[in-house]
Nucleic acid binder design. Structure first.
Lengths: 233, 233
DNA sequence: AATGGTTTTATGTGCATACATAATAGGCTG
DNA sequence: CAGCCTATTATGTATGCACATAAAACCATT
């Protein structure tokens, strides 16, 4: 059986994947180098490189210069979550999106907030609370602090109509951010707003975004009971 | 100001990022085509392509043949989570890892499990419960079902010593999987094992992996209170 | 045997060129 | 004007070549 010739990087990738799954190359194994594979597959080294690089980005291969390429011993599953605007998230489930502003004011934030955002302990920030609906049922509660020094325009925005979630994406660019997922027990207030029993276990997303060295906004999204965030591996 | 010449794809990427952040190219805008950019930057089109492709993979650009490249209107934040083996997760926090098997038996699973795994309603599966520790405190509770038709070797494995979590990664390859994050309220049993009050809000990861068309394993990881899953954007 | 410098090697990247492919735009025909 | 066909265009990718770079392996010196 002479090599059936793999002429594009996708098919090279598929063949490498096949060998990994078939355990011809086991976790931890060193695989042949690019030049050899290229010859075996009857294609250019660039093509093999492209395929292997893609697999390495997905965490299935470990590559190091000179040391060579080996099958990842512990294939760190890279779950790529798409965190979209809430409106889109709801609409993509085929539900009707609704939005209601709860409060909107300048205030000096709790220390935990100003510390995380690295703003002065007495600097006022714009504080916004809003509720997102899916088919008229509460979907998520948004509790957000905005650094007005970084986003001065936010003062003039009409958060009755457009959610801060959406407005910021369009008007406030960020260079980096961090995101955390956790669970929280519903406070009396949260339970009332989300229309669920107090103490319910709720799924939470905390996000903090930065523009260079300045914090742009910190937001906590608390989802109604039963919410799941899913993705494929 | 003559172009300072961007000679590698990283610097091209940086420059494109700068323009996006500086709003020279706003969300939704069509940006110049690869050939033009290549000329402007004084590099080959291949290099520009590499840079733009990487940005598109990160969701910052939308590219379509002939239609061109535009800045993503709603930069769907792609959070890439690294789901590692629990032992590594704990050790990377600088804590001591511990593991204890709770139960290990063949049993006919609840309907919800056999349905999700698409096994026969009366087919027995291998059921494993175990507890992971960090610095001697309960860290996560693992509740797992294994399809022994797909992983026959699992019968002989010593799950007293090695966690199923780890054993499977090494011995059972999978071709695809799904993962879901949510919150749950601690049952009396869970509370006892995790050493926390009943009704505590707990963070949960559900994972189901497949080898081709057959389910390999379905696992629920319930974390001790306060657990956060974090990543950078 | 420890040390430090040099060679070797596998991956990483850039470039010029060619062709493939998707999708729009434009033109032709009825 | 609707419908179909064709030309155009931007991205996608394969190739051969060259050189860059990291890191392991080797060797010589002390």
């Amino acid at each position: 059986m002479n090599s059936p010739s793999f002429r594009n990087w996708q098919s090279v990738q598929d063949e490498v994947l096949r060998r990994i799954h078939a355990r011809e190359w086991k976790p931890g194994d060193l695989i042949p180098n690019e030049a050899d594979l290229a010859q075996e597959f009857g294609c250019a080294r660039t093509t093999v490189n492209r395929a292997l690089r893609a697999l390495a980005e997905n965490g299935l291969l470990d590559r190091r210069r000179k040391a060579g390429t080996r099958v990842a011993a512990q294939p760190v599953a890279k779950a790529t979550l798409d965190i979209a605007v809430i409106r889109r998230e709801v609409e993509e489930r085929g539900q009707k999106y609704g939005y209601q502003l709860i409060s909107h004011a300048q205030a000096v934030p709790p220390l935990a907030i100003s510390a995380a955002m690295q703003t002065g302990a007495r600097d006022p920030l714009l504080h916004i609370c809003a509720l997102h609906f899916a088919d008229d049922a509460p979907y998520a509660l948004e509790d957000r602090w905005i650094n007005m020094h970084v986003v001065p325009d936010a003062g003039g925005a009409d958060f009755q109509q457009v959610s801060a979630n959406e407005w910021l994406l369009k008007h406030a660019p960020y260079t980096k951010g961090e995101i955390a997922f956790s669970a929280t027990s519903a406070t009396a207030n949260e339970a009332a707003v989300l229309n669920c029993p107090a103490q319910s276990a709720l799924f939470v997303i905390d996000r903090l975004t930065w523009d260079k060295a300045q914090a742009v906004t910190k937001v906590r999204l608390i989802f109604a009971p039963g919410h799941q965030l899913r993705t494929l591996l």
